[in-house]
Design a protein around this nucleic acid. Sequence first.
DNA 1: GTACAATTCAAACGAACGTATGAAAGAGGC
DNA 2: GCCTCTTTCATACGTTCGTTTGAATTGTAC
Lengths: 205, 205
Amino acid sequence: MKEASAKDRILDSAELLLAERGLDATSLRDITSSASVNLAAVNYHFRSKDELILAVFTRLVEPMTARRLALLDALPGDAPLEDVLTCLFRPALEMAKHKALVARMYVERPDLFQRIFETHLRPSAHRFAAAFSQRLPGLGATELGWRMHFLVGLMIHTLAAEPILRAISGDPAPLENMDAVLAKLVAFGAGGLRAQPTLGEEPYA
Amino acid sequence: MKEASAKDRILDSAELLLAERGLDATSLRDITSSASVNLAAVNYHFRSKDELILAVFTRLVEPMTARRLALLDALPGDAPLEDVLTCLFRPALEMAKHKALVARMYVERPDLFQRIFETHLRPSAHRFAAAFSQRLPGLGATELGWRMHFLVGLMIHTLAAEPILRAISGDPAPLENMDAVLAKLVAFGAGGLRAQPTLGEEPYA
DNA sequence: GTACAATTCAAACGAACGTATGAAAGAGGC
DNA sequence: GCCTCTTTCATACGTTCGTTTGAATTGTAC
């Protein structure tokens, strides 16, 4: 049993705590004491708290994107819309227990989120846009952009909502049954994508 | 032209700054200097920062709920699903320039959000659930609960996404044309609500 | 073993935060 | 005028934060 390096232990603890408590609310002291390393180790291995957050997020997003594209590539060309949505949603739901981090990043640090989006998310977004467009011939690029934006909303909200769902529903682990949640997400998303497009024109993307 | 009271000026400044910068990231000193009041005024008129946040949020949510119910009550019994969704979404989009506050509250302070939900949102949620259920006879209570959860996700995400949309699309005010956004939200939401329900059973609510 | 780089450590820095205090100023009734 | 209650004010308290420093320790190659 190899000991994990200090750098990795910091990443692990940060991933857990940042998702659990929030970005601002988690101090470097929380992280380093949880990781059993010295406080200064963060600024030695990473350069600042922001860079640490970025590293945590990158480590989380990179395999997710890879998995998404792998699933999409493995899909037959005539696969239904629902299957494409599954390729998009499943890897997000699979992200261990740290789903909330994406949502926190999204609203607390849009500046950092955008950096991740440009480098890791935008290329795969284009791939999915093409897959959707092929299956929704009546939809213009503008309308599709908005609808993909809505899909992101469904996803991020569901990832972030575990504590809320727990409080509201009383279920201690409402996202436990991943496949059931995934099925509901896919059904709703497909229904929304297939809706009759509106008439107004809006610039987007 | 009557001068606004210190209490109201604090609420106004807090509403603006909290939505703009985030809950933790906005200090009481930011708020009081923007409102041109003494720092101690916050702890005099409200008891703490948390109570101030709660007051800001309550002042925002109360008329929104009232407007929602008013719109819903004015709806003919045979109005289509889309009209019910409009009653739900329009008041949210109408909330001046401080829409992002709802989303920030949602992910940064779920504890405070839940207090607001219980007192101001849950009753109207039941009214809307009934309106939806009546128009979607095939949908069980569990499935409807999840789909309303998805609707909240659409809404909160759209409210929160202005800075992201601005960064991604380049449009300086992508939510400016409220009616167009509303139409897209309603179309997508109605499509999702009408989708074929999944088979799995999940406890909810 | 010795030299050199990489890592860890305890300790401290200045800044910013929410909150509290007690005196000063203002408003209204008499 | 004076008394009382409300509101404002400057100032300070104690805490926590991200970051830095310089010495101690560990690892590695010769």
